[in-house]
């Protein structure tokens, strides 16, 4: 206390200031988590929250610039976007949106249980959030692998026909995937071969190489299968992965759609991976019993981060998958 360093009104010395100093040291003794340069848990919590919100602001601008790039490209090439969007699988994208929303809910519930000091419920919620993140990435992996094998990619590779790389192996993997297989809505394509299998066992169709759907979102509905079985349209089989190159309707520079698609969803995917990492650390700390009604700041902050990841996807989904 000898380091009296600020000019100070004398009467404060004996009275209020000594009291507040005492109170502060009391706060530090009471709350072990309180850092030395904060006076109260409320001040520490408010600082952490503001810091996190500022970080989220940087995240918004980080993604924001990509959205600007998207807007510029889309305003220059509207036909590319409305055409290429149909190569994306709305079902998978929709399911992923749902997965992220539910994982956001479990994260928010996790914050609630942390605030109430219910350790087990918090840990369960965090594991559920983690499962949601993992599920999102698994679905995203299947989407990516289909497109990459069909050379629906960025750059000049988009214009190079693949050499039958997309073989049976992938088809098997797809058949056994836990996710619903994409339905096929065939569109007449020359030299197409009908490849119709029983529902759920061998969906020998890659939705990502399907031309613009003419009959709306069929999903896995029986109607779609009936439509297909009734010969309502020819189906593009795996053996024609360069279908986009053979489509006379493909507008020039379509690869740009996929460039920005991979850039934005890829960056988002990296954020999901980072999210899984920090949620894992939270699970570790929650199991150790670090959190309770007095101190749950890390849960709250990771929650905010996870919600912003969800929020970005909420914009990505309609902007890429749902272009009319």
């Amino acid at each position: 206390m000898s380091q009296i360093t600020a000019e100070r009104d004398p009467h404060l010395h004996g009275g209020a200031d000594a009291d507040s100093g005492h109170a502060h040291s009391g706060e530090h003794a009471k709350y072990s988590f309180l850092a030395h340069h904060f006076d109260s848990p409320a001040q520490q919590f408010d600082s952490a929250k503001l810091g996190m919100w500022l970080f989220l602001a940087t995240e918004v601008l980080f993604f924001g610039a990509l959205f600007v790039g998207y807007a510029v490209l889309r305003s220059r090439f509207p036909e590319v976007f409305s055409y290429a969007s149909h190569y994306l699988d709305t079902t998978m994208g929709g399911i992923n949106t749902g997965v992220l929303i539910v994982s956001s809910l479990t994260m928010a519930l996790g914050v609630y249980f942390a605030q109430r000091g219910r350790k087990l419920a918090l840990i369960i919620c965090l594991w559920l959030t983690m499962a949601g993140a993992a599920g999102f990435l698994v679905i995203k992996y299947f989407e990516y692998s289909h497109k990459i094998h069909a050379h629906l990619v960025w750059g000049p590779t988009f214009y190079i026909p693949p050499h039958n790389e997309f073989g049976n192996e992938e088809a098997t993997a797809l058949a056994h995937a836990p996710t619903p297989a994409p339905a096929a809505v065939g569109v007449p394509v020359h030299s197409a071969v009908a490849a119709v299998g029983p529902l759920g066992t061998a969906p020998m169709v890659d939705a990502s190489v399907i031309k613009p759907a003419s009959v709306g979102p069929t999903g896995l509905s029986a109607a779609a299968v009936d439509h297909r079985l009734a010969g309502g349209g020819d189906i593009i089989p795996y053996e024609m992965p360069s279908a986009h190159l053979e489509d006379p309707n493909m507008p020039p520079n379509t690869h740009l759609f996929f460039s920005i698609y991979y850039a934005m969803t890829g960056l988002h995917g990296i954020h999901v991976v980072v999210g899984m990492f920090v949620i894992g650390m939270l699970i570790h700390r929650a199991t150790r019993g670090d959190f309770g009604p007095n101190y749950y700041t890390p849960v709250d902050l990771v929650g905010l981060y996870w919600h912003i990841v969800d929020l970005v996807w909420i914009f990505l989904f309609p902007l890429f998958y749902l272009i009319h």
Partner: peptide
């Protein structure tokens, strides 16, 4: 049953 800081959302 309320936290020390922050708001409880049900």
């Amino acid at each position: 049953g309320h936290p020390l800081v922050g708001h409880l959302v049900g």
